[in-house]
Write a protein that binds this DNA or RNA. Structure first.
Lengths: 144, 144
DNA sequence: TAACAATAATTAGTACAACAAATATATAAG
DNA sequence: CTTATATATTTGTTGTACTAATTATTGTTA
């Protein structure tokens, strides 16, 4: 195959990625979930393991530290999480999912799972496995 | 398969998409291409068909109009493109790839093709076809 | 212990994304 | 012709991404 014929994957990936976010965001709005899709990722990670510090959390959700700082700022304002000083290392904060945050998660999680499923209604389990494998292979090939 | 097992694709897609951009942007920097990846998309589209108006161009590269307006602003500053008033419809500009822009494209295009190929070095042609099919299916399933 | 390096988080600056609203112009309907 | 509607683009706002620089703290080593 020629090089030129490979030239559209980044476009397809980018626009599909954007549409997935748009779709989820639109549903969030319809359901009056007052968060963005990226904020959701943070809450979900904390719901699985609470009180991570920011670096761990950034690693978990694959965002960099400055971006995470701002997402945490926004979630703090909404009182869904709070920063807690770690006495043993005063450089760190642990991010704590509050009771309000936990309550919202219980309310939102099943609906988010529904929303996420929509993308797969015309695809098979094998497609899902293939997509994961292909994306991970690309990710590793472009190690930076 | 349970709903829960489908819950990571958006994360994988997002991080792979980000890495593809990061990788290309890093190479652009190394080669002293003084543009961003998104600006490249615009130039590439104009190189294939010059003098599109902004709406056509936005459609071509899958971005919305406000985003494109700002990308065009930046490309104008670099004198790679220029806005030309269309006398027949004074609402429109056609975006013209300048001589300087064309010259840069000749210089850059082969190297960008190389950079783009890197993602596929551990994958097959069938993987490429599968990825395209899966992404397009998702895109269409989430019609908004 | 003092100097140096490493780590956690933040801040600042620029770019892009999404959305809503505004402006200007063109076209259609009455 | 006038009103209404549609189209092309821009502007404003909020949120995310990346880089580099900064602050505060901790760890290492001479």
């Amino acid at each position: 195959m020629t090089k030129e014929s490979f030239n559209t994957y980044s476009y397809l990936l980018d626009r599909t990625n954007r549409r997935i976010k748009q779709f989820a965001q639109k549903k969030f709005k319809e359901e009056s979930f007052d968060i963005t899709v990226d904020q959701w990722l943070v809450l979900k990670s904390l719901n699985q393991e609470n009180d991570q510090n920011q670096s761990e959390l950034a690693e978990q959700i694959g965002k960099d530290n400055p971006t995470l700082t701002r997402i945490i700022d926004l979630l703090c304002k909404k009182e869904l999480v709070e920063r807690r000083q770690l006495p043993s290392d005063r450089r760190c904060f642990t991010i704590h999912l509050t009771d309000k945050g936990k309550q919202k998660m219980e309310e939102w999680a099943p609906k988010v799972a529904e929303i996420r499923m929509k993308a797969w209604e015309n695809l098979t389990e094998k497609d899902y496995e293939d997509l994961k494998r292909i994306l991970n292979t690309i990710y590793q090939s472009l190690e930076i």
